[in-house]
Structures are given as structure tokens and as C-alpha cells.
Amino acid sequence: MTNKTALITGANKGIGFATARQLGSLGMTVLVGARDAERGRAAERELRDGGVDAAFVPLDVTDAESVAAAAKRVEAEHGRLDVLVNNAGIVLGDGPGALPSETTLATLRRVYETNVFGPVAVTNALLPLLRRAPAARIVNVSSEVGSITAMTDPTGALAGLVSVPYPSSKAALNMVTAMYAKELRDTPIKVNAANPGYCATDLNGNNGFRTPEQGAEVSVHLATLPADGPSGLLWGFQENVAAGYGVLPW
């Protein structure tokens, strides 16, 4: 899998970094999107030391000028983009229980800026370059907590989770994914949402039961789908399913 270029947002650590390393191991040039220059350059060095063709790209998904500059750089240096992984995300809550009744609009806006508006801004800026690729792939890193079906199952693993900002942002991202897939259904571009599962990252205080590397496998699978692969799905880790991976309900 040579001569392909992938951009991963929030790629300086966690699942994003693991995704960059795995895509790089397949022969792709990986662009490490990160808003922190020091961490981004450190990630680039580590990837290069491991044999990956990597380059740090300054990218704050909540900043329009940063997004435009990143798109301009990708065009100037690569001419096209084969894979976009919208991985950057944040978790915030208010009050001791982070309950819906404790949620402030300020927190909700901050979460949506990164988790929803960011992927839309980045995708729109890079879509012209994705269209230039023979068969581009867009992966939006979502979560099963964005599945209304899963969140409202009284017997499911998420029955005890009650919060607004992060789950609702991922539900919104799921719809964003479905709509881009519909717009691009007559093109070779495939758009899917990834559920990495509950991975131990800074996002959750490293409390997850899956590793970042395991979580990254989901994004890598969707980023390398064949021509007859699906589009417009939430796909990834499934609790209590022998196969481990599959399509999750919206």
C-alpha cells in the first residue's frame, strides 16, 4: 500500500498516534495533525524512528485559519489526500455527576467545536484533495455512546451512563457521517464512523479496558476498505459479541 497519504487529526497521542503508526506500517505517508507543535514534532520523530514516513502538520480543528493552512500545505506537498481520519476529540462535563441538569452551554459548545464542527471543517477543507485520490476514505472516530439504541438499552453496558456533552456530540457526528456518505455515494469515496471501544487514553484518565492500538485497528480497517466495502456505517468494537467487531446501531 504505497504512494498513499493519510492525515490523522489529534495524532500526537493515544488512538490517533496508534492509527498513524499502523497506517504508516502499511506504507502510507502519515501526516500527524496536532495543535501542540512540541507534541506533534515529538510524535513525528517517534514515528520516523520506527520507520514510518511521517510529517507533523499544525492543525487545530477548532481554528478556521489553522484548518485552511493545513489543507493548503497538503495540497502543496502531496497534491491529493487518500485517507482522512477525524480523530481529535475531547470530553468535558459540569458538576459532580456531569448530569444533563448540570451541563452548561459553554461546556456543550466547547465539546461540539472539537467533536462535531471540527470534523465538518476539516472534511470540507480537504474534500477537494480527497476527490483527487482514486478511492479516498474518510473515517470519523465516534463512539457507541453516540448510539441512541445502545444508550437507551436498559440492560446494556451503557445503561448507567447519563451525560449530555460527549454522547450527544458523537450522536451528531454519526449523523454527519451518514450525510457525507449520502452526498458521496456515487463517488469512490467511502465515509464511515469508527467505534474504537473503551480504550485507555488521556480522554478517560487511562481507565479503558482496550489499548490505543486495539482502538486504532478499527480506524485502520475503515481507512483501508476495498472498493466493494461499505459506506455510511458505525462500525467497530462490540461488547459481548464473539466476533468482536461489526456494525453498530445508530
Rank of each mutant, 00 (worst) to 15 (best):
G79A: 02
V85Y: 02
R109M: 03
T107M: 09
L108Y: 12
A98F: 13
P96A: 11
G93L: 02
E102C: 10
L99W: 13
T103W: 05
R80H: 13
L108K: 01
V85T: 05
G89L: 03
G93N: 09
V85N: 03
G95D: 02
R110V: 00
L105I: 11
E102N: 10
S101R: 15
G95S: 02
L108M: 14
G93T: 09
L108T: 09
R110S: 09
L84F: 04
T104S: 14
G79L: 03
D82Y: 02
E102Q: 14
P100V: 09
R110N: 08
T107Y: 01
D94Y: 00
D82C: 07
P96H: 02
G95P: 01
G97M: 13
A88E: 08
H78S: 05
G89P: 05
G79F: 03
N87Y: 01
E102M: 12
A88M: 07
A106Y: 10
P100K: 07
R109P: 05
L81F: 03
G79M: 01
G79R: 00
V85G: 04
V91C: 11
V91R: 14
E102A: 11
G93C: 06
L108A: 10
D94T: 02
G79V: 06
G97P: 07
D82H: 10
L84E: 02
G79H: 01
L81C: 05
P96Q: 08
L99R: 15
L81R: 03
T104G: 13
P96T: 07
R80K: 12
G89I: 04
T104I: 13
R80S: 11
L108Q: 10
G97L: 15
T104A: 09
V91W: 15
A98S: 13
V91H: 14
G97H: 15
A88P: 03
R109F: 07
N86W: 10
I90D: 00
N87S: 10
D82F: 08
S101Y: 15
L108H: 06
G93Q: 11
G95I: 00
L105G: 06
T104W: 03
L84H: 00
D94I: 00
D82G: 12
N86C: 11
R110H: 04
D82Q: 05
A88G: 09
R109H: 12
I90G: 03
P100Q: 07
G95A: 04
A98T: 13
L105V: 12
S101M: 14
V83D: 07
N87M: 08
T104Y: 11
L105A: 12
L81P: 04
P100G: 08
